[in-house]
Simulated scan of single mutants.
Amino acid sequence: MAIRELLRGTVDWTRLEAVARTVAERNGRTAVRVEFLDADNWLSTPMIVDDEWFVKVVTPQNSVVHAVFTAGRNLGAFSSGTEGFFDHVGTPLALAEREFEAATRMRAIGLNAPRPVDAFEVEGLGVLVLEYLPDFRTFDDLADAEVESHASELFDVLSTMHDEGLAHGDLRGENLLVYDDELYVIDATTVREEGFAGARSYDLACALAELAQRIGAREAVAAAREAYPVADVLAARDFLDFVALRPDHDFDGNALKGEIERVAT
């Protein structure tokens, strides 16, 4: 836990007060109520403001950790036989602005994402303000039957992103929200344009792994095939060993590869 806290870093109260004060001022309010979340988040300090906005505070330490994560993921991509496609931006403000842009682009193509409100800098901190979705649940919170009911929707969303030249880059259960029985996607990252084909296959591999561990390999592959041709699913197979290294995916890689190969033949 001490190592984790060191890597994540902390934000002293006076700087968080400055963030809250700036959020209030930029929205014409004299004061706001802040609730801090007990979230296991490596890349920001999250808080809820006035039950209306979800705010992420990004520190220089968070930016350093993001660079380390990006380097590790690119090594994993190399191990899957492709050039690294994950991209790092160098400052806390750039990280906030990048997520703001990703949410804006997703909403522009008709996908559900929390409405981006603002991105700015305060005392060297990057601040991202998004619409707060009350009473949402992540995929991790859903019963397996509910996950299965959203399986086809997940691949439809992913396919729409990919058709519009967008890749997620960090698809996992906690980045998939269900609100008012609709699927929302959050925390999309940046990938290099020249590596888009690899990022697309990686996204699909992550989605297959996420579903296979909940509803089974056959059901996951069948849902993917509703939105993607066999060739795309086969390309995703090459990234499954890389995905299996991530602690947030716990699936039977051999079973999933076998089901993909069965469908392909």
Score class of each variant (00 low, 15 high):
residue 95 L to H: 13
residue 96 A to S: 04
residue 103 A to T: 09
residue 105 R to D: 05
residue 106 M to S: 06
residue 107 R to G: 01
residue 109 I to E: 06
residue 110 G to K: 14
residue 111 L to P: 04
residue 114 P to A: 09
residue 116 P to D: 06
residue 117 V to H: 06
residue 118 D to S: 11
residue 123 E to C: 11
residue 124 G to L: 11
residue 126 G to H: 08
residue 128 L to P: 00
residue 128 L to Q: 02
residue 128 L to V: 05
residue 128 L to T: 00
residue 130 L to F: 04
residue 130 L to S: 07
residue 131 E to T: 04
residue 133 L to S: 12
residue 133 L to A: 13
residue 134 P to H: 15
residue 136 F to L: 03
residue 137 R to G: 12
residue 137 R to T: 13
residue 137 R to K: 15
residue 140 D to M: 03
residue 140 D to Q: 05
residue 142 L to G: 03
residue 143 A to P: 12
residue 147 V to C: 07
residue 149 S to I: 05
residue 153 E to N: 06
residue 154 L to T: 10
residue 154 L to N: 10
residue 155 F to C: 08
residue 157 V to A: 08
residue 157 V to I: 07
residue 161 M to F: 01
residue 165 G to Q: 09
residue 167 A to Y: 04
residue 167 A to M: 02
residue 167 A to R: 02
residue 168 H to K: 08
residue 169 G to K: 03
residue 170 D to Q: 14
residue 175 N to P: 09
residue 175 N to C: 10
residue 176 L to H: 08
residue 177 L to A: 03
residue 177 L to D: 03
residue 177 L to F: 02
residue 178 V to I: 15
residue 179 Y to K: 09
residue 180 D to K: 15
residue 181 D to W: 10
residue 184 Y to Q: 10
residue 189 T to Q: 09
residue 190 T to E: 12
residue 192 R to V: 05
residue 193 E to T: 14
residue 193 E to N: 09
residue 193 E to I: 13
residue 198 G to Y: 05
residue 199 A to Q: 00
residue 201 S to V: 09
residue 202 Y to S: 13
residue 202 Y to C: 09
residue 203 D to M: 02
residue 203 D to Y: 01
residue 204 L to C: 00
residue 204 L to D: 03
residue 205 A to W: 04
residue 205 A to L: 02
residue 206 C to E: 00
residue 206 C to F: 02
residue 208 L to D: 03
residue 210 E to T: 09
residue 210 E to F: 00
residue 212 A to P: 01
residue 212 A to T: 07
residue 215 I to N: 10
residue 216 G to M: 14
residue 216 G to S: 14
residue 218 R to P: 05
residue 219 E to C: 12
residue 219 E to W: 06
residue 221 V to I: 07
residue 222 A to C: 08
residue 222 A to R: 13
residue 224 A to V: 03
residue 224 A to F: 00
residue 225 R to V: 10
residue 225 R to H: 10
residue 226 E to W: 07
residue 227 A to Y: 01
residue 228 Y to D: 00
residue 234 L to K: 10
residue 236 A to G: 01
residue 237 R to V: 12
residue 237 R to Y: 12
